[in-house]
Write a protein that binds this DNA or RNA. Structure first.
Lengths: 238, 238
DNA sequence: GCATCGTATGGTGTATACAAGACCCAGCGC
DNA sequence: GCGCTGGGTCTTGTATACACCATACGATGC
């Protein structure tokens, strides 16, 4: 193991992890309130680390805090989703262009290839939970390949919020997404920035439209007016 | 005034504002420690709101927290600065492209023109403090013109961190920056996305190289090895 | 019956207290 | 002299306590 000290993380971080997870896997529904006291008691800690964890998660956009009114899990509107995806596209394009132009460390390339293989296998086997995780890792590694730390960080923050869109949703048509991943990687390997940009734009817009379709389909089936409703059967992967 | 309730912000936010300001105006030097207890006593509050304020400011990248070791004001290396500027360029280009393509609300255009006029006047008069503030406002308004909330937010966060670079620095050659601002606005008014992109890239890379020069010059004059040294006589505006 | 005002309750905001970790330095042994 | 060890101090981590705000609901007046 690494040093013991480094492994001992403060409670606020453990609480933040737990809170994030509960939000992303839908245990805390969008629009639902987060009560400091209740969460604290549930986790067996005092309110202080919970409050600090809330500030962390707030800065990631997963919850919204109104002073003296409390905390609710963020609800991402269609418009906000569109905005987030647009920002993500801009950043991811910048990342792959940079990666293609200046080359990527072999270790990162190998890692990407490994994730790609795992992802294709998981897609074929229909392991959607795993696929979602692999998808996040692929894009994270892609950002890392740019060698730009600020880019990695910014994209990770966006990814977190976008994940909210897929909460409780199954992930369909994942095979297509993984083909696109493969082509992006090919373009980077070839050092062709324009090609990489084109593939990335295609991937993101494809994922966005897949998401839109699913969202519309879910809105038909479920009650569309209830903002806190958990969309079932919807979801796509970018 | 608006409602009284909305105006009453919690202490953590007031403390966060104060902390930000102290960092950005150099009262807290880069690399310097931030002691919770001391800050709390100085501001006449308890440690709790201070701790929460620190989480806020941490999420903005202005301070770095090491568990059980404490808080230090972030030091931005040349490489990190480069990375941040690159991300900013990507986002700002996306913003002006979108603004040019889909048009900007007249109110925002007027606001931009007003800031531009004020900025030009301030540049001529040599009011550098004011100029820095106007510069931030111009870019903020520019982002708002894109109509993409996520973009506004992301750029604001970057701007905060970049401001660290200019801490305690005078702002030279500001006139040039404001000419560039004017051309960006012209391009958006004309609805020419390619032109707007070109002007924005020129502006940011121009500002970056002005900054680099100043940094190099400052490193010659001052002790280059001391990370916490406050560079004097350096600074540029983007 | 309806509007309005108390009042109870649930919740957040802030302060204080204590525990535990990290760091510094003196003193000791080798 | 040099490294190690011990305590002391400074600082952060966590818990508890209380005050204040927001809201819901019932009582009271008309």
């Amino acid at each position: 193991m690494k040093t013991l000290g480094a492994a001992h993380r403060p409670l606020r971080e453990l609480v933040a992890d737990e809170l994030r997870q509960r939000i992303l896997d839908g245990r805390l529904p969008q629009g639902g309130r987060v009560i400091e006291d209740r969460l604290a008691e549930e986790l067996g800690v005092s309110r202080n680390p919970v409050r600090e964890a809330i500030r962390l998660v707030e800065s990631e956009g997963l919850v919204e805090v109104t002073p003296r009114r409390g905390v609710v899990v963020s609800v991402i509107s269609a418009e906000e989703a569109h905005d987030l995806i647009e920002v993500r596209a801009a950043l991811e394009v910048a990342a792959v262009r940079r990666a293609a132009n200046q080359g990527v460390a072999p270790a990162v390339l190998e890692e990407l290839a490994a994730i790609l293989a795992e992802g294709a296998a998981a897609a074929a086997a229909g392991q959607f939970e795993r696929l979602s995780m692999l998808n996040t890792r692929f894009h994270d590694e892609l950002a890392r390949g740019s060698g730009n730390g600020a880019l990695v960080e910014a994209l990770r923050s966006l990814q977190n919020r976008l994940q909210l869109l897929f909460t409780a949703g199954v992930h369909r048509r994942s095979g297509k997404a993984w083909e696109e991943h493969g082509r992006i990687l090919d373009a980077i390997r070839a050092g062709d920035a324009d090609w990489a940009e084109a593939e990335t734009r295609a991937h993101i817009s494809g994922a966005a439209s897949r998401y839109e379709n699913n969202r519309a389909a879910a809105a038909d089936g479920a009650a569309p007016s209830d903002a806190a409703a958990t969309p079932d059967g919807a979801g796509a992967q970018a």
